[in-house]
């Protein structure tokens, strides 16, 4: 179903008054997703910016049941929530776990792969800002090659772990990538995930201006450049069928990489190599 802005619910189920930094990509992802997930949703969020910005003391920015879990367990907690709802005969509640790159791909991976393998009826979202921003921007498995982080002053020597391929390999009926710069594409993917009675995985690229060392107001712009340069492909895998949901214009990768402070150490040769591999991947011939 194609979504139109006019059809989206007016209610802000998440975000107003949140304690995040200005221009927070994670909060944008949360707001966009909640427009589709709706009020009958229980969300678990492991230690992350998203967990801390969502509440403090007796206040929360969520209007749905929100639970800030321990770091490595959100998908396991959500599995238990689903089991509890089921035994109580409640079948109309969406169960979501929402981790950062750490809570999904790294420290949280064990619980994630377990829940995915069990094909629990839930959605796991990885909102990916490509580093551990809640602790000040350290390197994660989702940090891209060459990127600087607060605990690496040379640039990441190894590649970003391909979480989408890993999750696809679980044989799930719904896996998708998304970007906060393409909200309708993102929201339609949440609709598709809701229609899947098993485990769905959505990986959202959500820039953090502080970690990426870009101006805050360009958060969406860089999310868009990541897609248009071909470095972040928007696609979904529905019951094993892979579809690219947006054809990128393939602007030069340099336009995306070089303005970011985190790539200030990247060599000309490295940029050329990335460009070559992207061009080859999209099959648009040598430039």
């Amino acid at each position: 179903m194609t979504l139109r802005i006019e059809d989206l619910p007016k209610e802000e189920l998440f975000g107003q008054g949140n304690g995040g930094c200005k221009a927070c990509g994670a909060a944008i992802a949360g707001r966009q997703a909640m427009k589709v997930l709706g009020e009958r949703t229980i969300i678990t969020i492991p230690a992350s910016c998203m967990a801390t910005l969502g509440g403090n003391n007796q206040k929360t920015a969520w209007k749905i049941p929100f639970y800030h879990t321990l770091f490595e367990m959100a998908p396991a907690v959500s599995s238990g929530i689903r089991a509890a709802l089921e035994i109580q005969g409640v079948n109309d509640v969406n169960v979501v776990s929402w981790g950062g790159d750490a809570g999904s791909a790294d420290i949280g991976f064990q619980a994630l792969t377990g829940a995915a393998e069990r094909n629990e009826h839930m959605i796991h979202v990885c909102y990916d800002n490509e580093m551990y921003m809640n602790t000040g921007g350290q390197q994660s498995s989702q940090t891209p090659l060459y990127a600087l982080t607060s605990n690496d002053h040379i640039g990441k020597p190894v590649k970003k772990k391909n979480m989408l391929a890993i999750m696809e390999a679980h044989g799930l009926d719904y896996v998708a990538s998304a970007s906060i710069a393409y909200p309708f594409d993102l929201m339609e993917k949440f609709q598709n995930a809701l229609a899947n009675p098993g485990f769905s995985y959505i990986h959202i690229l959500a820039p953090c201006y502080r970690g990426w060392q870009i101006p805050g107001e360009k958060t969406i712009e860089f999310a868009r450049l990541a897609v248009e340069s071909g470095l972040w492909e928007l696609f979904e895998v529905k019951k094993g069928v892979r579809t690219r949901t947006h054809e990128p214009s393939l602007i030069p990768v340099a336009d995306y990489l070089l303005p970011q402070g985190r790539f200030k150490n990247i060599s000309k040769k490295a940029v050329e190599e990335i460009q070559t591999s992207i061009t080859k991947y999209y099959g648009r011939g040598d430039k």
């Binding site: 238990g80 089991a83 064990q110």
Partner: peptide, 23 residues
């Protein structure tokens, strides 16, 4: 409902989640 989790950590996590949801 029996949740066959992948670790002891998740075992208590899922038990806790179920408890929080009223079971």
């Amino acid at each position: 409902n029996f949740v066959r989790v992948e670790s002891d950590h998740s075992a208590l996590a899922a038990t806790l989640g179920a408890s929080l949801a009223g079971a």
